[in-house]
């Protein structure tokens, strides 16, 4: 019992500690491909530390939602962090929720960010909020379907159980439906983390920004929380990707050695995924907003194909 609580605490600390590092690493890899030197991989830590020392400037016209939204979003994302397997597959809190809970915790965070963006009454905020909801309406079904394809194979929607079973199956888990669902999820991961071709995290250009437009009114400590929440969400989406589709190397029991190995393996997986994202970000241009349904329907179709081929192969 005690050890499980310690594991949960440890996981939250790991998530909080690693998520700025992941952002830093992706930025560094991007800089490498653009033949720039780039900022240090620890820059996101410095940014957040600096923001935490500053005061917030808040508009007089905002309601309580504006103050509550960063905290609620951050809490929702961290709660999802208790359910998503990161370095150990049998999560102590896995009884509390499955993949549907994770999807809706992300949706809760997104809902409050969008509400807060409307609250300040700036035109950019409303624009960002409406775009975010537009994308979310297509991302959510695709996200569900793609994990369902794997969940059907395992016979459970519990993330810990999916991770355990796939990791126990070894390489024989690699099947057409598995790969199709993986590619579908990769497209969704790009949309969820707000990366090119869906959104550009490095710009504040009025016409194109989505996530940046929503948090335009925030400053100081609140901005630090919002930024950290976005980074944590990015890490969680990546660890979903890593630990559902190729969970090999994850610790399946509590033990010092296995957890140490699992942490190193997890770090390698995350860096590889970050490199893939960085390559996609450098090699593609941002898409027009109204072409995004095409991209996301490709993802939806791939997860649909994955489900259909699962049924065909297993003879449903």
């Amino acid at each position: 019992m005690i050890s499980q609580i310690i594991i949960s605490f440890f996981q939250i600390i790991i998530i909080l500690a690693l998520s700025p590092l992941l952002s830093g690493i992706i930025k560094k890899i991007k800089a490498f491909f653009q033949i720039r030197k780039g900022a240090s991989i620890f820059q996101p830590y410095y940014d957040i530390a600096k923001l935490l020392r500053k005061d917030s400037v808040v508009s007089e016209n905002v309601s309580w939602i504006f103050h509550a939204a960063p905290v609620i979003s951050f809490a929702a994302v961290l709660t999802a962090g208790l359910i998503v397997p990161v370095f150990i597959s049998n999560m102590p809190f896995s009884f509390a929720g499955d993949l549907i809970a994770v999807v809706y915790l992300f949706a809760l965070a997104r809902f409050f960010t969008a509400l807060a963006s409307l609250d300040a009454g700036s035109s950019f905020g409303g624009m960002g909020g409406s775009r975010e909801m537009f994308i979310a309406s297509m991302v959510e079904p695709a996200l569900m379907l793609s994990i369902f394809a794997v969940a059907l194979n395992v016979g459970s929607t519990n993330l810990s159980q999916i991770s355990q079973t796939v990791s126990a199956m070894g390489l024989s888990a690699v099947s057409p439906y598995h790969l199709l669902a993986f590619v579908a999820f990769l497209i969704i991961a790009i949309a969820e983390t707000g990366r090119i071709p869906v959104d550009n995290p490095a710009t504040h250009l009025e016409l194109t920004m989505i996530h940046e437009a929503m948090i335009l009114e925030y400053s100081g400590k609140q901005l630090a929380i919002v930024e950290l929440g976005a980074m944590v969400k990015q890490l969680l989406v990546f660890s979903l990707l890593a630990n559902i589709f190729f969970p090999w190397g994850i610790a399946d029991s509590v033990g010092f050695g296995s957890i140490a190995i699992a942490l190193i393996v997890f770090l390698i997986k995350i860096i590889v995924l970050g490199a893939i994202i960085a390559i996609i970000e450098t090699s593609t241009a941002k898409w027009r907003l109204f072409r995004l349904p095409d991209l996301l329907s490709v993802s939806l179709m791939l997860s649909f194909l994955s489900l259909v081929s699962f049924i065909i192969v297993k003879g449903g």
Partner: peptide, 13 residues
Amino acid sequence: MQLFIALILVSTF
């Protein structure tokens, strides 16, 4: 074999 066939479907899409 299943892998190749699934990839053929993907290329069609």
